[in-house]
Computed example of a mutant assay.
Amino acid sequence: MNIDFSKSAHGLIPAIIQDSETKNVLMLGYMNAEAYQKTIDTQKVTFFSRSKQRLWTKGEESGNFLNLIDVKNDCDGDTLLIQAKPVGPTCHTGSDTCWQEPNNQEYGFISHLEKTITTRRENADSEKSYVASLFKLGINKIAQKVGEEAIEVVIEAKDDNDDLFLSESADLLFHYLILLQAKGFKLDNVINVLKSRQK
């Protein structure tokens, strides 16, 4: 990589640290050429500390290291995106990130949908909520509904109507997310099982 450390008077460039798995931004630090090389050599993210005026390996005192996974350079060659696997919290305050946010895995719209299901379940008194009504009927009804939707997906898969197939697939996924919560789980639990099967 052609990294341009000369753009700063002090030879420092920003290094954005991203969790390699969750893709959440954990912190921002600064590297000079020596810090970058030490990061590559030790596979532990190392910065140049502007306050201490020396190289500083994240976790050297706390044990909360950032194990290097990958490094990317931006289009101008003067900013690094470093993917790392954190060992413990990243922020000195004890937070997962320096923005005081939990480093949870998010799945975009699916995570939003899971939160909506949780909210509807917690407000089970709402007579207008389809989700709340399903939870009131109990696990057997929810499981039955998943089975019905799965059969409809299979039926539509054998036909040529893609719109119907996608619609039934959406219904199946929606009801499956409800079933997971009825059993006390989230999609994350299923994904962890899939990850454990990777070879």
Rank of each mutant, 00 (worst) to 15 (best):
T79G: 07
T79R: 02
T79K: 04
L81K: 05
L81W: 07
I82Y: 03
I82C: 03
Q83G: 01
Q83H: 11
K85T: 01
K85G: 07
K85H: 07
K85I: 02
P86S: 06
G88K: 02
P89V: 01
C91R: 03
C91M: 02
H92C: 01
T93W: 07
T93S: 11
G94W: 12
S95Q: 11
D96I: 00
T97V: 05
T97D: 01
T97L: 02
C98V: 03
C98G: 04
C98Y: 04
W99K: 10
E101Y: 12
E101L: 12
E101A: 12
P102N: 08
P102G: 07
P102W: 06
P102D: 09
N103Q: 07
N104G: 04
E106S: 09
E106V: 02
G108E: 00
I110C: 02
S111T: 13
S111E: 10
H112G: 09
L113C: 03
K115E: 14
T116N: 14
T116H: 14
I117K: 04
I117R: 01
T118E: 15
T119E: 15
R120Y: 15
R120M: 15
E122F: 10
D125L: 06
S126V: 05
E127Y: 01
K128R: 11
K128W: 13
S129Y: 15
S129N: 09
Y130E: 15
V131R: 04
A132M: 05
S133T: 10
L134S: 04
L134H: 07
F135N: 08
F135A: 07
K136L: 14
K136T: 07
K136R: 15
L137A: 15
L137C: 09
G138Y: 01
I139R: 15
K141D: 12
I142E: 03
K145F: 11
V146W: 02
V146P: 07
G147T: 01
G147P: 09
E148T: 07
E148W: 10
E149C: 05
I151K: 13
V153I: 03
V154K: 06
I155K: 15
D160K: 11
N161C: 04
N161A: 05
D163L: 10
L164M: 12
L164D: 08
S167Q: 09
S167R: 02
S167Y: 09
S167D: 12
